[in-house]
């Protein structure tokens, strides 16, 4: 009898430099949620009871799970997902756990790194904000967590390319800080 095994999006997904680290977030539960027509209020009520709110465009909810505005009337939930069984028939739910790969960025030098990667103004990915953008032609989310913490979501199939892009920008920032005169 066989047993399928899981493969991570990347095998080596951690990269650390002074004041800057990048780490792949593996095995993260994700779900897209879209209330059917006329059911938004009911869905919001059920979610509120579990402490989850649905953010407006450009905003991000960070606790108890992350919620990002995915599209018109559609959100992406990530992390400790709420119980949504009661909403069957009222929402369109689609598992997105393996659609994305997430990277945690930490450190005081991360803003310098992000200004090399993200065309959007830094205010759009400040704490509690999320922006849908492109990093090296890869459609991504850039999400502001705390002062020195961000998360980037990109398509799983491009995890290696995205990781390479993040590392190159990190290397540039590090080298300019330590080598450039």
């Amino acid at each position: 009898m066989f047993k399928l095994t899981e493969a991570p999006a990347l095998h080596a997904g951690k990269y650390e430099l002074a004041e800057l680290s990048i780490e792949l977030l593996d095995n993260t539960s994700r779900l897209s949620l879209a209330p059917l027509k006329g059911e938004l209020e009911q869905v919001e009520n059920v979610l509120q009871q579990q402490g989850v709110s649905l953010p407006a465009p450009t905003e991000a909810v960070l606790n108890p799970c992350m919620v990002l505005p995915l599209g018109q009337g559609q959100w992406l939930l990530q992390g400790r997902l709420p119980d949504l069984d009661i909403l069957e028939g009222f929402v369109a739910l689609t598992d997105q756990s393996d659609a994305w790969s997430g990277f945690a960025l930490q450190g005081a030098k991360v803003p310098k790194m992000l200004e090399r990667l993200v065309a959007n103004a830094p205010a759009t990915y400040a704490s509690g904000k999320a922006v849908r953008t492109q990093i090296e032609h890869i459609g991504c989310w850039v999400i502001g967590l705390t002062q020195n913490e961000w998360q980037i979501l990109g398509p799983r199939s491009s995890a290696q390319s995205l990781f390479d892009a993040l590392k190159h920008a990190a290397d540039a920032v590090y080298a300019l800080t330590h080598n450039g005169k």
Binding site: A34, G38, Q74, T94, A99, S157
Partner: peptide
């Protein structure tokens, strides 16, 4: 399909999401 959903037939109760990556 998103264009049709949002602009041509916004009255329809339908939601779309890509799952190319997920499966």
């Amino acid at each position: 399909m998103e264009f049709v959903h949002q602009c041509l037939a916004p009255e329809l109760d339908v939601h779309l999401i890509s799952t190319t990556e997920a499966w």
